[in-house]
Every structure is written in C-alpha cells, then in structure tokens.
Design a protein around this nucleic acid. Structure first.
Lengths: 259, 259
DNA sequence: TAGTGGTCTAGACCACTTC
DNA sequence: AAGTGGTCTAGACCACTAA
C-alpha cells in the first residue's frame, strides 16, 4: 500500500541491483560494478556501497570473489529426490566389493566423489530413540560427504546398531561399499531387509562449520534430513542424518489421500 | 582439525556470542549486552560490535528490537506436516457454510486467522502445466495468508480450473469456506473427489515481500511447497503454491521401499 | 602494479524504547 | 532524559586477483 520504506542509501543501492538481477538486466555470471564505482555513482561513502553488496550476498543473489569482483550467482540444476531413490532395484543387485586401491591407514578417504569415515560411538538420546536401543549402547557411525562435479552437495551420516553390521563391509572405512545403496544391500544380506522409510525434513540456516564444509555461499539455507529405515516388521535398522545445500535439491512425494 | 580462522574482531565477537547461545549460557529470550558495552569490552569501535550483532541476526540466532536491545531468539514450536493433514476424515464431513458476518465489499477479509482473496486470472505456463490446460485458460486463484496466534505462518495460493469451481462457494471471497479442507469438500461435491497428491518442497531465502508479509526475522529461510491434487483417474483438480516460515514447520513422510 | 573486496576506526546523527 | 539499535562518513590498511 505505502511506498517501500527506504531505510537509507545502502538499501536503495541494494534494491536497485536486486531488481536488475531479478529482471534479468544483470544475467547470471555477470560482473557487478565495483563498490568504489557504486559509491561514486550514488554519492555515498565506500562503506555504504559495501554494505549493499553484503546484503545481496546474504540473500544469495550474488557471490563475491576476493580481489576480483561481485558476480550474479549462477543457477544450480536442481536434483529432485523422491522415494524411488531407495528402490530395491537400485541396491538388491549391488555387488558388494571393496576397492582396495589405496591401503592408506587414514580412515577418511576420497574416492568417487565421496569422503567416508567410520567410527564406533555410544548412542546419544536421539540415536537411541531412533534405533530403539538404550542410550549409550554401541552404534556404528558412518559419516560421508557426497560430492558432485568436485563440489560438495550434501553430508549423510548413518547410524547402525553395532551388532547389526559388525564384521560387515559397512565397518570398512574404505569408501566404495555404499556408493549406491550398498548399505541397504549389506543389511539385506544379514537378514535385515529394508522395507519402510520415514523421512523428516527441516530447513534452516547452516552452522559456520556446515557452511565451510559444503562451501555454501553466504545466505544459502540447508535442508536437514532425518531418516529411519525399518524392516517389514517395524524394526529400525538405520538412522541417518543428512545436510543438503538447499539450492541444489528439491523433494518430491506422491501419495494417495489417506482416510 | 585446525583452529577456527578468525577474519577479524567482529567475527571473534560473533563467535563468542554464538557459542554462548548454542551452549545455553544465553537462554532464549535473554538480552545480549548492548553494542556499546561489547565495543568497550573487546576494545573495538562501536561499528565493529554492530557488525557482529548483524551477523548473528542474519543467522537467525537473535532478534533485535529497535531502541531496546538484542535478544536470543525464542524457539518456535515446530508443526510437523504429513499426508494425514489431507485425510478424507478431515474434509468429507465438513459442512460448507459461508459465515456472512461482514458484508464488506472488499475481497480481502480477515477471519479465523486467515486472509483470503479470490481472483479470476489467466493461467500462466506453470499453472497451465500443472492443471493440464492451455496457457491463458481461465483459472480461479484463491490466495490465503494463514495466521496462528496472531503471527502469520504461511501463505497458500490455490488454482482451480474455472469450470470446476464456478458458482461454488470457492469463488466466494468471504473466508470460512475452506478453513479445514473445505476446498476438497467442494470439489468432491462436484464429482471431483481428490484421490492423490503430489508435493514438491524447496527451501530458499525469502524475497523482501515475503519477509515482510510473514514477518520473518532476517536470516530465516522459507520452504516453498507446490502441490498438485488429482482425482482417482489422474485428472488434476487443484494446483497450490505455499510459502512456509522454515522455523515453524517440518515435513514427515513414511512410505514403503519401492521396487 | 593496479584493481578490487574485506575490515576496521572514530565520530556523528537519527529513531525508537524505557523510565 | 537516558539507553539502545541503525546508519552513514572519510579515511586507512590488508589480502587477493589479474594482467
């Protein structure tokens, strides 16, 4: 109804640049004017122009390259995630093999766009509740960072009851085991065939750690995914927590109207 | 592994306050020290302390009240959304009644925590694809802002084929019709019973308009939900787009592992 | 080496809240 | 009236990039 409340010159500069970007006058990848130029053009101090740029960056509209310039952010192709990514056909026939290409002693390795680290830990309250075990009971934690085209897209950390996966390739710190649902295949081999999945999604801003790990531009939210996998008789076999860069993923579900 | 890279005093101040909040030493609702105090304590200029506060605000950890102070943000109770919110039992028995409490001529009214506006518009590309009609075909747009305890939580805009809902209460701009799945009930009455839903979720930062409308604190992301509702034979009857404040909602889905 | 982003200082003024 | 957040200025220095 009322005209936009302009709280100051920096907001004005940000608004001008924002509409230029949203209307396509500044295309993705285009370089913005240097802050010194903006300051001159608008007759403000350099600090004020810097503030406008920082605002747009926090909105995720631009990225800044130190010493180079500010650029309109490129669009990421969105990957849509749905139930089919857990389909039996994707893991039932998976050949479980460990690629012993690098006999390094380090537990964290990189291969095929996936970092992996395996640890034996005690179940905290949340893990215990999900796996329906006692707090403090031993669990196997398998933490991964998934990369695509050299850019990290999401983390995924799985927890298993220790007795379920001990002496299986899941405990092998070398990656390659679970690249494509390998974890499910191994559980099925042990007589714990996955039959049902419950997923929870929450969006939030990343912690500084997550922002660094996932190389998130400032202003990019993340989606936290929590998943419990159960057998046909309802026994939980895996609890997993993932953090996804919001701009790179969408979720899609189709289901019948319940009664 | 390595110590946190401190890019400067403002980052240091922000980090100190951040851990105080996350570790609970500063409880939700607690007042932070004034920026002038922070500047003195850390021996920096006031501007630098202000910057630290602005950073925390953009992370959604604190809210600032002009002229009063900065406060640790209160937790919102999370409302979990799942397929059951569309259950037949919630709308099949709904009595469709228009509460004609205010014969105002304005199409946008407020009642029962819901603003509503109904318009007849031409289908754009996205609407047309979702409803499987021609671009430019007439559709009924029903835009709502849903409020809970006087604070707006999300928007929801539904699109229907004009011929499906013309001369039904859906086109009545007075709210109260669709408070609890009333839209589904009306469609069912016309022989278009909802049978299947497809939902798409994306998280992103809000536009300035959305931030204002939903009264979002800086740094709060939103979740955009797109929904297509179909009859048993796959005919789309409703396309809806909603924007949810991320801190107030979570999504939960349970489904069998597909083949 | 020149251009550019990032951060900081010291001081100023304004707007809003609280008392 | 005092306290507090928000914004701005003018100038400085540093770190990184690109030619």
């Amino acid at each position: 109804m009322s005209p936009e409340a302009l709280t100051g010159p920096s907001a004005r500069i940000a608004a001008d640049l924002r509409s230029a970007i949203l209307e396509g006058r500044l295309a993705p990848g285009a370089k913005l004017p240097p802050v010194r130029t903006l300051a001159d053009q608008y007759g403000v101090s350099r600090n004020t122009a810097v503030k406008a740029i920082a605002q747009l960056r926090s909105e995720g509209l631009i990225v800044t390259k130190y010493g180079s310039g500010a650029y309109v952010r490129d669009e990421h192709p969105v990957r849509w995630l749905g139930p089919d990514r857990y389909a039996r056909s994707r893991w039932a026939t998976t050949t479980v093999e460990v690629r012993a290409d690098d006999p390094s002693s380090d537990a964290a390795q990189i291969q095929g766009g996936q970092t992996q680290e395996v640890n034996r830990v005690d179940a905290d309250e949340r893990i215990a509740a999900a796996l329906e075990i006692e707090v403090g009971a031993p669990v196997i934690e398998r933490a991964r960072v998934i990369t695509r085209a050299d850019v990290p897209t999401h983390t995924m950390t799985s927890y298993y009851r220790a007795e379920d996966v001990e002496d299986t390739p899941i405990c092998d710190p070398r990656p390659g085991i679970a690249g494509r649902g390998g974890g499910f295949a191994i559980l099925a081999e042990r007589g714990l065939e996955p039959a049902e999945v419950t997923e929870e999604l929450r969006a939030r801003m990343p912690t500084p750690d997550e922002a660094e790990l996932l190389e998130l531009p400032p202003g990019e939210p993340v989606v936290e995914l929590r998943r419990i996998t159960r057998t046909a008789n309802g026994r939980p076999i895996e609890y997993a927590v993932g953090v996804h860069a919001a701009s790179r993923f969408g979720w899609r579900f189709t289901y019948p109207i319940p009664d």
